[in-house]
């Protein structure tokens, strides 16, 4: 049976703050930070944007791109670590706002930065079992970084939605297989009721990101008998520009393979949207027959790998919704004061 991406849609808020502006406030060396992180600016939500509004905009874009009847969507799963409600699913808001309600199942996912790909895997299962016709999986975040914390330089906002189906005539990108690697690793967390997450500093690198991404990626390639050179493109979770570049080299992927999907230097880490944003940016320019390898990483920790082949359908649907490149061009730059207002760091009462 063939399972795949019937459509996808991305959303990135228009506002940006530059690394220099954040570094100015905290007395940090902006040039050293930019060299170290390979991130130059990050997206910032408007005062009235949150993970739910971003998820809705991405989902509407996905529906517009494939022109399907939204009532065919039988499951809406939204992955985020910044759901606006602690109790009340973001996915109910999305389902209503795209016209998929009421005959559908819905739930919210949380697995740090890989909640969106976990939602894709759940949809793949429901679609392949025949329980639903189409599934909508979303990764969307307005991620939090405490003032002055290292995360503040990269914690950004954005989201991507993917419609998963099994009708071969509708599939724009076949998901050949998926593989996950998960352990209990305390590299990053946010306790209930806390405004900002905590991280294990340098501990987040090797025991977290690199261990899970390399094991997940190698596991999938061994499972299906492929090698890095079998793929035209590769996407790895991008908390900054350095990590995906280094892990690609470790695994044997070239710079040219990861370049089209590496969007983090311009928009920062969109957390649950991060790897999916790279996949969306790659689909925006991939040709029929191209193969894409992708591994998402979520702290806590785990990775989801996917082997994808683009079909002829991509040419038909691609230009019906904004591409990632179109979404990130023409930003509005703001200073730290306005950033603080947009992010709710200023309390009025």
């Amino acid at each position: 049976m063939t399972i795949g991406i019937v459509s996808y849609g991305a959303y990135v808020p228009r506002y940006r703050i530059k690394i220099e502006e954040i570094a100015r406030l905290w007395g940090d060396d902006a040039e050293a930070l930019k060299r170290g992180l390979m991130v130059y600016e990050k997206s910032v939500p408007d005062v009235d944007e949150d993970a739910a509004t971003i998820a809705v905009e991405a989902a509407r874009s996905a529906v517009a791109r494939c022109e399907i009847d939204p009532s065919r969507i039988g499951a809406v799963y939204t992955g985020s670590e910044s759901h606006p409600y602690a109790v009340k699913p973001t996915s109910t808001i999305v389902g209503q706002a795209i016209g998929a309600t009421p005959v559908m199942t819905a739930a919210d996912f949380e697995f740090a930065c890989k909640a969106g790909t976990a939602a894709i895997q759940a949809c793949m299962g429901l679609v392949s079992s025949g329980m639903i016709d189409l599934g909508l999986a979303i990764g969307a975040d307005v991620s939090q970084g405490a003032p002055g914390d290292a995360l503040e330089y990269t914690a950004a906002a954005g989201g991507v939605a993917c419609i998963i189906g099994k009708k071969e005539s509708e599939i724009a990108a076949i998901i050949e297989d998926t593989y996950s690697f998960t352990t209990d690793t305390p590299d990053f967390w946010r306790r209930e009721g806390m405004a900002y997450p905590e991280h294990g500093g340098r501990f987040t690198g090797d025991p977290g990101y690199f261990k899970h991404v390399t094991n997940g990626a190698r596991g999938l390639m061994e499972k299906i008998g492929t090698k890095p050179e079998d793929y035209d493109y590769a996407v790895f979770h991008q908390p900054n520009g350095k990590f995906p570049s280094r892990v690609a080299k470790l695994l044997g992927f070239s710079k040219a393979q990861i370049e089209p999907g590496l969007v983090v230097p311009k928009i920062g880490n969109t957390y649950s949207g991060s790897c999916l944003m790279g996949i969306a940016a790659t689909l925006d320019q991939a040709k029929p027959g191209d193969r894409i390898f992708a591994t998402a990483f979520g702290s806590g920790a785990g990775s989801d790998s996917f082997s994808i082949t683009v079909t002829d359908k991509i040419e038909e649907i691609r230009n019906r919704a904004p591409t990632v490149a179109e979404l990130i061009k023409d930003p509005i730059y703001i200073d730290y004061a306005r950033y603080a207002k947009h992010k709710g760091k200023i309390r009025l009462s």
């Binding site: 944007e49 949150d50 739910a52 509004t53 905009e57």
Partner: peptide, 13 residues
């Protein structure tokens, strides 16, 4: 699609 308002910190969005 945007947030119109909220019923304080405890109310609905």
């Amino acid at each position: 699609f945007r947030k119109l308002g909220e019923g304080g910190e405890r109310g609905m969005i």
